[in-house]
Design a protein around this nucleic acid. Structure first.
Length: 283
DNA sequence: CTTTTTCCCTGGACGC
DNA sequence: TGCGTCCAGGGAAAAA
């Protein structure tokens, strides 16, 4: 599933090819892709615009167009962004096609149709993300202290907290498991139960997990492919995710699978300590 | 306010 | 072979 490392991998691959190019036209092939906005409206907003920037915010892919417009896309579960040569036969599940100045096409392919695309102006992007997307984990704003602030008083399990994009933006099911394992924290521990040493450990673990994902070019478990249709290698380097029953890489204990926040959650029952809910210590 | 649950969507796995 | 059922999960919305 595309999470921050997967989206970042695609962004880095596309940047040299797309920057400065004009989008001749956009063809929305599945009207649900722009829901609730009319596809024609999005097509008209994109047609003929030059690409000035390629950015990422959490798991959102942002294409900065001229005149301060931003094409915002989200791959959700099964979305893929593919850069293909002219004349390539249409793939199954092709939802949107960008015909580029140089003849190549950028495809949004998405079997389950959760993915979406929209065109907003810069102010609307801010508006849309406000309160919904938290700190960028790979920015220098993401410190142990910041993590302490955003988890203070929270009773939700650490796994739920990591999946909540309003806290840290870009961590999904895979990298949440990996980060908790690295930090030796139990997925069911209340987020607010962490002490300073845990804040530091989890901050470092989130960063390390995401960087490992980017270094591996993302994790191709099911549908994820990079912008050239290639596979990442991160799925071969998982420490706990999807390793139910296999020995913990640290202690040999069989990895356990539970469901937290409706998501499969993998952890080592011996390495990852469960913290008790912390009562407010008298100041 | 915070937290949990439901919903969207469809390919693939599994059982009969 | 084919049909029915269940699962996967990001994020928004509804419910608790």
């Amino acid at each position: 599933m595309p999470e921050l490392p997967e989206v970042e991998t695609i962004r880095r691959q596309l940047e040299p090819d797309l920057l400065g190019q004009r989008i001749e036209r956009l063809e929305v092939l599945d009207e649900r892709w722009t829901r609730p906005v009319d596809p024609g409206e999005v097509e008209r907003a994109v047609d003929g615009k030059r690409i000035e920037r390629l950015d990422r915010r959490g798991k959102y892919f942002l294409v900065g167009l001229e005149d301060d417009f931003v094409l915002v896309m989200h791959l959700r579960m099964t979305g893929n962004l593919l850069l293909v040569d002219a004349g390539t036969p249409d793939a199954a599940y092709l939802r949107a096609r960008f015909v580029l100045e140089d003849g190549r096409q950028l495809w949004f392919v998405d079997a389950r149709r959760f993915g979406e695309g929209a065109v907003l102006d810069a102010a609307e992007v801010e508006q849309r993300f406000r309160g919904r997307l938290g700190v960028e984990p790979l920015s220098d704003v993401f410190t142990a202290g910041e993590l302490g602030r955003i988890t203070a008083g929270r009773s939700a399990p650490l796994k739920s907290f990591l999946l909540n994009q309003a806290g840290i933006a870009g961590v999904g099911n895979i990298y949440a498991d990996e980060a908790l394992f690295r930090a030796r924290l139990h997925p069911l521990s209340p987020a607010g139960s962490m002490r300073a040493e845990h804040h530091a450990a989890l901050r470092d673990a989130v960063v390390a997990s995401l960087c490992a994902g980017i270094d591996g070019g993302g994790a191709s478990i099911d549908d994820y492919r990079d912008a050239r249709g290639g596979r990442g290698t991160m799925q071969d380097e998982f420490l706990v995710h999807a390793r139910e029953g296999q020995p913990c890489v640290r202690c040999g204990e069989p990895i356990r699978r539970i469901v937290v926040a409706g998501r499969s959650t993998y952890y080592c029952p011996r390495c990852q300590v469960r913290l008790r809910r912390r009562r407010r210590t008298g100041l």
